[in-house]
Design a protein around this nucleic acid. Structure first.
Lengths: 166, 166
DNA sequence: CAATTTAAGTTGCGAATCACTACCTACATA
DNA sequence: TATGTAGGTAGTGATTCGCAACTTAAATTG
């Protein structure tokens, strides 16, 4: 049967919710900047080259959605700090997956700076879909089930582990 | 040092490329429908409730970007099939990551239909960033390196990684 | 202390995009 | 032949984008 989802229930899906928060122009670029330790309005503006009114609008929207926190700086009361919340940081896999796709299929000749695991300086893996036992899954391996249909993992777990080794 | 990327080279990053292809309104919803075996113009239109001119525009853009293929149906020459290409399918991790985020943080009371691995009917894992040795990485574990700085690993390790990607 | 600079916005306005509806053309079906 | 279907296009108003100028409050400089 493969990947097929009950449609007409599109509103229930997480995708429109994610797009509602992050789907506007510049939102992902702002997120990226935030991951890169850009915290202030003027920094975002000069790094991204975005119009000030648009930037103000996007920042306040991201704050409303709980993706960025907004705190006035105590040591310089002109300044405001925009910082990623937990919710915002949880977008990292989506962002990395997007950029890996862009790097792979775009005509980026040089991916000179490469994202690595700090611990051993090795590049991270491509972001993938994983089964509960860590197998990498493709579109053909996925399907939709209702909660009731999902069997809890029990004794069969051992068999699956054996399966994985083999 | 953590996650910090040489800025000013933003154009080199894959993210703007990905957003250029997928960043417009409806593009991700159309992609999602395509993964759900929606192939025809009228199907997209009625499932998504999108205006016809916008849909036509998005479909042709996705075709231009090589994300969808467009083939007239031989058996009914009124019909046209829009199908995901390899490049389009490669967006699956990004899309799943986005919807998982939306489901987790949106106020979806019910995630009734759940995406499972077809083989054993177990839900898929949350999409994560992984080190070369499969450790799950967070924002704090990542940093940017230039290609020269990345020490090569033993041959067996690399073979294993290639295996995984394929 | 006054003058200047900086940070974070806001406002106005033209250009581009979105969305709704009606229309069109080629083809298939009754 | 008449009717319906599939995949668009065209016209029109409502939104949104993007640029530039302006504002306000706080810091810095002379």
């Amino acid at each position: 049967m493969g990947l097929r989802e009950p449609l007409k229930q599109i509103a229930d899906c997480g995708l429109p919710i994610a797009l509602e928060a992050m789907g506007e122009r510049w939102s992902f670029m702002i997120l990226r900047a935030a991951f890169n330790r850009i915290y202030h309005f003027e920094e975002f503006q000069s790094e991204l080259g975005i119009a000030r009114n648009i930037l103000a609008n996007r920042l306040s929207r991201l704050v409303e959605h709980g993706i960025l926190g907004r705190t006035p700086c105590p040591e310089d009361r002109r300044k405001v700090e925009y910082r990623l919340t937990e919710k915002g940081m949880a977008l990292l896999p989506a962002m990395i997956a997007l950029r890996q796709w862009g790097e792979l299929y775009g005509s980026c000749t040089t991916s000179t700076p490469v994202l690595v695991d700090e611990r051993d300086n090795q590049p991270i893996q491509p972001v993938t879909i994983r089964a509960h036992d860590d197998r990498v899954l493709g579109p053909a391996d996925l399907c939709w089930r209702h909660a009731e249909e999902v069997k809890p993992l029990g004794a069969s777990r051992e068999a699956e582990l054996m399966d994985r080794v083999a």
